[in-house]
């Protein structure tokens, strides 16, 4: 991992909805191949921040460059270079596993040959051969999530954004999911992930913790524990988040 190549560079990035400031002048950098954990309580502004970085939402002020592209003017170039897996499950449930792979791969411009190779490889890696022709709606949640992640990196993006990808998933599947994340990172894909699970935070190279729209802490899990004099990530999170004003 080279630390001098930021693929995400945000400076004073802000999003206001009327009087409410959801994201309040956050600044940070994420480097190539890094697994960056984006933590925060519900309502802290994680999803809003992530949507700005993905080009889904225009910032109110501040700047950010994603894979070298500007979040105001170059959203379409950004979209070509990122993968995104939203909180809400978003593959088509009335299409089969193969059809979903084909559709999303196709609109990212993969050739027929690439599509064939990649679908085969993906299905084999996930062990979905018997389910390949089943409707995605019929799969258990954990499988859907793994499939959605794999589809989101099918076009080999520079960065993949994952918004609570393991919400509601059992511990075994979560472990498998993280194996997929590590595999993607080792292939040079930068992973930007939000989570509520503190054990997952420990898997990240670096994490940031958002409180009330601001980044309250940023560093490696180890650094944060030392800094706040806590023995676990749970303790770190609790110490920072309990002072929050915007809670569900």
């Amino acid at each position: 991992m080279s630390m001098n190549e930021p693929v995400i560079k945000a400076e004073n990035l802000t999003k206001r909805f009327g009087d409410f400031t959801a994201v309040d002048a956050i600044s940070f950098e994420v480097y190539k191949g890094e697994i960056f954990g984006f933590l925060g309580a519900n309502g802290a502004g994680k999803t809003t921040a992530m949507r700005m970085l993905c080009g889904l939402s225009t910032p109110s002020s501040g700047t950010a460059r994603i894979a070298g592209f500007d979040v105001y003017r170059q959203t379409e170039q950004i979209k070509r270079n990122i993968g995104y897996m939203s909180q809400k499950f978003s593959l088509y449930e009335d299409l089969t596993v193969l059809e979903n792979i084909r559709f999303f791969g196709g609109i990212y411009g993969l050739s027929n040959q690439q599509l064939k190779l990649k679908s085969d490889a993906l299905i084999e890696r996930l062990g979905l051969q018997p389910e390949a022709k089943k409707m995605v709606g019929e799969l258990p949640l954990g499988w859907k999530q793994k499939l959605a992640f794999s589809v989101s990196i099918l076009h080999e993006p520079t960065i993949v954004f994952l918004d609570e990808p393991t919400g509601g998933v059992d511990p075994v599947t979560r472990r498998q999911f993280w194996a997929l994340i590590y595999e993607a990172a080792s292939n040079g894909i930068t992973v930007f992930v939000t989570t509520h699970y503190m054990d997952e935070a420990e898997y990240c190279n670096r994490i940031s913790i958002m409180v009330d729209g601001r980044i309250a802490a940023l560093g490696t899990p180890k650094e944060l524990k030392i800094q706040l004099n806590e023995s676990s990530m749970d303790g770190v999170f609790y110490q920072l988040a309990r002072g929050a004003k915007n809670k569900d």
């Binding site: 889904l56 070509r80 499950f89 978003s90 593959l91 999303f104 990212y108």
Partner: peptide, 13 residues
């Protein structure tokens, strides 16, 4: 409603 539009919007379509 089902949220797939978000996935479409994040593609270069």
């Amino acid at each position: 409603e089902i949220g797939t539009i978000e996935q479409i919007n994040v593609t270069p379509i």
